[in-house]
Amino acid sequence: MPGLCLSDTIDGGSSPHGVLCDRIPPPYIHCRRARPRRAPDLPHLAWLQRARGFCQDVQKGICVMLDLPSVVFIVFAAVLVGSALAVVTLRNIVHAALFLVLVFGAAAGIYVLLNAEFIAIVQILVYAGAVTILILFAIMLTQNPNSRGSNPSNRQTLIAALIAVALCAGAVFAFAQNTSITTASQKAISGPPGSVVGIGQLLYSPTSYSYVLPFEIASVVLLVAIVGAIVIGRED
């Protein structure tokens, strides 16, 4: 992938001085403090070489890598956080449940970005398909006549917001502090796609390094949950 192979060579704005880059067509590089010049008609690989030379030589300006996966990540992350905020802040619970579908769909996009296609499909099927329908059915069966204020907040809103903000700030601070995570994360997340076969072998193969026993226990958990839901929700 051209965007990812370039990003190993170009400093992504982490050094104090930064680097100067030209504007390259496939991996988009935004340059602050450096006027973007037009790309001449060179073959793509030669362009990468030239950009690498530029970025190692000139010590002015700041490069910010914006290749296509990063743009997709930004879009999905924005949709994810925005619709999650809509879920927890909207006053109408039906609207909140519909925004929950958007949360699940954007999370599936994040899984695709992480090369986890199987998890993405399962996410769409189970969460966006089944769990949302269950929640909507529960909302319909427990609906008050007025659904306008059907999702009120309790008296702990302020302290809940404080706890959430403190947790978020602490987690982000910990990720910024932990050098082992940051050094391991300098490499872009990438890998061979098509992990469904590997997941199937890990789940089902009767070797010592598989998850056959947790899989069977999970099926028993599902059976117990189904029977329990029928027994609890039965009308008698």
Partner: peptide, 12 residues
């Protein structure tokens, strides 16, 4: 954090 806020601050 957003989910925790929703779980802590809702009545329904």
């Amino acid at each position: 954090s957003i989910g925790l806020f929703g779980a802590l601050s809702k009545r329904n």
